[in-house]
Amino acid sequence: MSEVIVVTSGKGGVGKTTSSANIGTGLALANKKVALIDADIGLRNLDVVMGLENRIVYDLVDVVEGNCRLKQALIKDKRFDKLFLLPAAQTRDKNAVSPEQMKKLCEDLKEDGFDYIIVDCPAGIEQGFKNAIAGADRAVVITTPEVSAVRDADRIIGLLEANGLNNPLLILNRLRVDMVKRGDMMNIEDVTEILAIDVLGIVPDDEAIVVSTNRGEPAVSDPNSKAGEAYRNITRRILGEEVPFMKFEENESFFTKLKKIFSK
């Protein structure tokens, strides 16, 4: 059985592309055949996050316009067996593809034996969003614990449900545990209370993500990265496993240790 999952958020810069790359790579590491589709036409980035930018010959628009066969446009990731990327066109705009064409593309990939097709959705709620969700079976909504990002996530959830994508799952990205403890950041309970959706995962803010993006190597394959661990858990949950949420251990400062002694 194969499934098309769209990764979306509404607001830009909350981690859609990073999440798409890590979920796709995680699923490939779990021995699933995965196609990553960059649906952000005109602003392609999934290729650089994946470190595959030098291998692009054809792109998504070439495929839907019939300039090449689907197999020719799919870039095989040499590091991860069974992982393929379909890059976005950089010189075209969102109107170069229609929802029907996206639907057809997803169907073709399913027929080609892909277990998971991950669609990286562009920011916004216009044509690009409509295209990206057209062929999806389920949706993952990314947000960060900020007012603007959660507000946009709420809008996106409404639009997904209006388009028949019910019960999207939430990834809360870039959580700062120290700030939550201080009360200076909304926590996962605050966000889920407001959005009323199920949580797929919580990804802590992690410098390792910047480093891995710099190198073009998804953090999910880095055993020492906390965010990577969160994405490994997310992957297992997508595969149907029950995985408890990570316990975030804070490095205790001298002051907090002292405080504990005094509070006894």
């Binding site: 614990p145 900020e146 007012v147 959660v150 507000r151 709420d154 809008r155 700030m179 939550v180 201080r182 009360g183 200076d184 950041m185 909304m186 926590n187 605050d190 407001i194």
Partner: peptide, 17 residues
């Protein structure tokens, strides 16, 4: 705390939205 301020503001914004 700014976290609960954020939550309250967000709730009100969403009521309108």
């Amino acid at each position: 705390s700014s976290g609960s301020v954020a939550k309250d503001r967000l709730k009100l914004v969403l009521v309108h939205d």
